[in-house]
Write a protein that binds this DNA or RNA. Sequence first.
DNA 1: ACGAGAACCTGTTTGC
DNA 2: TGCAAACAGGTTCTCG
Length: 277
Amino acid sequence: MPELPEVETVCRGLKPHLEGRRLVRVEARRPDLRVPLPDDFAGRLTGRRVESLGRRAKYILAHLDGGETMVVHLGMSGRMVIVADGAAAERSPHDHVLFETDQGCHVIFNDPRRFGLITLARTDALDRHRLFADMGPEPLGNAFSGALLAERFADRRAPIKAALLDQRLIAGLGNIYVCESLYLAEIAPTRPAGSLNAGECDRLARAVRDVLDRAIAAGGSSLRDYVQASGELGYFQHSFAVYGREGDPCPNCDCDGGVQRIVQSNRSTFYCATRQL
DNA sequence: ACGAGAACCTGTTTGC
DNA sequence: TGCAAACAGGTTCTCG
């Protein structure tokens, strides 16, 4: 389920186990992820120290000593599993990469669909890496605003739903939070992106920030319990206003239609046709 | 350049 | 109940 808030939550959960720790063992069990693991992946990582963990859009960044950064994307189904006592843990067939730290903690990258990726990049050239070079601004960054959205959406005829999913325009939003943001901003997902006026762009920017902030807060509050319970990071309980709620009453108006589901660029969109114009 | 659609892969849910 | 189809939170490629 990883969109920006989930990746942020995973990052925060990983920090206490990885930051400042040295990787004493790295095992690449299945290198054929969406982007194959780099040559000699395990060899290049073994013995390296994790200086700090960060996030860019939906990517986890582990900055290592020696000037390289490990870049992790969870795809659709990726998780990070933390196992304090690694020796006793069962291994799943989808455990593709395992990291063991100098404190004996195992961090396991598990991804059934293998849409995720792990790669290595020069830290001082991350911005120019092909994964990040064309990436838009962070929706939680200082530069994000209605004016920025207006500029990015100008002359775009694609539906606003599709524009918000385009990582080159804004980086980090996925299907769920785009639906939720448009609902909160009361903007129809079918509107051409370029048709939004300044007021609507302001409303949308505020809605995006609000939805993401609240999701991160929900993830953070569930993190403590969840890690202790199962070691899995990346999934947490969170309720949505419209996402996955086709046929339910709209939470904010008593319209006849309730929450509707349509398909835009092959993906489900949930919205209220009465409230969102 | 832009936008729509398919493809990638596997697991789970839905519908007949 | 059983099986096939539809569907899933992402990205990237092709085609018009």
